[in-house]
Design a protein around this nucleic acid. Structure first.
Lengths: 214, 214
DNA sequence: GTGACTCTACCGGTTTACCGGTAGTCACCC
DNA sequence: GGGTGACTACCGGTAAACCGGTAGAGTCAC
């Protein structure tokens, strides 16, 4: 009994490598691959896969949105989330959006076929690295990993990048054709969402997230 | 003739999948894998690989720092950067840090073995997505390397470190038992000596010089 | 329609950073 | 002795960041 899979991740290298690995499993068949949300939706419609593996952090239309729409329109397709983050907010969001499984990129690659088989069988799957996050709600979030970049909107990310590149607010305002006050609003939102307090902290966050270079 | 590789990426799933794929090539041998900067450096020292594949966006000690250190201490190991970004600044930073190749995660997975072979042969490699205007920009930079940390006095270095750690001037004054005005003097001296203009730039300088972590 | 979110913009006010300069003391070197 | 740099501290003033709040318009899901 072959499990038919659609795989969605914006990083082609990871896609290719995972397809290569999944295809080596005799009971798994990757019928389509997608690099963004909209084409993921289209391919699910076209192929009606048993399992959709979807990257949580895809740009534009992210994994949560994809999962919501696929779950609504194609409830028979089981959704397995693939994520760079163990943060429980993302786990909860994906399950709320209709996912049946959650695997992080910190997991061993060999966990993926197992996760696929579990969700295809109608079970819920959480990879070992995130079970604690969900079960132990008592853990303080301050000791967890920093918020992901995807909590920021596109405009906020742009402001973040430019601040971290050493630009002043007035220059950013001119560059983005907005008022200084709006830059300030974005900067506040960034600081609040990411719990940062100085430009030095902000700069480091941007560097860590790959948004700005050292 | 086997090319010996160390692969460094904080996402284990990608690591596993890429190792799986590279190992299928008869002339490639992944001798070690690392998930962070410091252990990457240790493994390079231990294994003396022909090629280090390093993810640019690793947390804490990122790919640029890893490349700089590996290039300085193990110049025979060729460095191939693996990155989620095609932005030319990342490319420039990695080449400046000593990398011989740059492959983005948007590239096909099949590009990776080819890139490895090219850099192992002593050639420079740029994956197709970032050639073009990048090459022109890789011409020798008119600006020289930044001033060394040794142009700063001990007190100035202390102020630099604390600013880069996200402390405010008043807190630094209290911590060092000096007046706010003196902190200001030190900050000015730092900016002048290093030709920096914003705290973001200062933070990055401190990170590059190993005075503050990301 | 309603609520939430995003983007835009503003107010008044405070705090901090920044910048031109000043200067004293000390240690070191010529 | 004189010059220089480091460390300390200050002046008056400006620029920028920061912070409490306000609000309208557009979009989208419910």
């Amino acid at each position: 009994m072959t499990i038919r899979i659609v795989l969605a991740d914006d990083h082609r290298m990871l896609r290719d490598a995972l397809v290569n690995m999944l295809s080596a499993e005799t009971d798994l068949d990757v019928v389509a691959v997608a690099g963004d949300g909209p084409s993921t939706f289209d391919l699910v419609r076209e192929h009606a896969p048993d399992v959709l593996i979807v990257d949580v952090g895809m740009p534009e239309m992210n994994g949560v949105e994809v999962a919501q729409r696929v779950h609504t329109h194609f409830p028979k397709t089981r959704i397995l989330a693939l994520s760079g983050y163990t943060d429980k907010r993302f786990v909860q969001e994906m399950f709320k959006a209709g996912a049946a499984g959650y695997v992080t990129k910190a997991a061993a690659a060999s966990d993926l076929p197992r996760a696929v088989r579990e969700v295809a069988r109608g079970k819920l799957y959480l990879c070992p690295g995130v079970t604690g996050s969900i079960v132990a709600d008592l853990l303080p979030t301050s000791s967890g990993s920093p918020p992901p970049l995807s909590v920021l909107t596109a405009r906020e990310r742009e402001v973040l990048r430019m601040l971290a590149d050493g630009e002043r607010s007035l220059a950013i305002a001119e560059s983005m054709s907005i008022s200084l006050a709006t830059v300030e609003v974005h900067r506040r939102n960034i600081m609040r969402k990411l719990d940062l307090h100085t430009i030095a902290e902000l700069t480091k966050y941007a560097i860590r997230e790959g948004l700005s270079s050292v």
